[in-house]
């Protein structure tokens, strides 16, 4: 259980496990845009292509990646802190 205690506190959550590229990132980008600067988004995504691309794209937008947690069910949760005017 220890790894769950280390997870950052999230202000909002979004599940993009039902989407494929590029909609995964588009929905993440839309969610981040509606949040306050400094707020944390917990983004649940599938292993494979999403986990390879979405963190990189989010980072390229200037947001801060806090943690990528393996949910051990074929999905990951990415914790992102929104940076304003990225």
């Amino acid at each position: 259980m220890e790894k769950y205690e280390n997870l950052p506190a999230a202000d909002a959550a979004l599940d993009i496990t039902d989407a494929v590229c590029p909609i995964t990132f588009v929905r993440a980008k839309a969610a981040l845009e509606e949040m306050e600067a400094g707020a944390v988004l917990a983004l649940r995504m599938n292993d494979g292509e999403p986990v390879q691309n979405v963190p990189r794209s989010v980072k390229e937008e200037g947001h801060r990646i806090l943690k990528l947690a393996d949910n051990e069910d074929g999905t990951y949760t990415l914790f992102v802190r929104k940076v304003e005017e990225a």
């Binding site: 590029p22 909609i23 990132f25 588009v26 980008k29 839309a30 794209s57």
Partner: peptide, 9 residues
């Protein structure tokens, strides 16, 4: 979001 995804990216 899907329709305009290529812009939004």
């Amino acid at each position: 979001l899907e329709r305009y995804s290529r812009h939004i990216i």
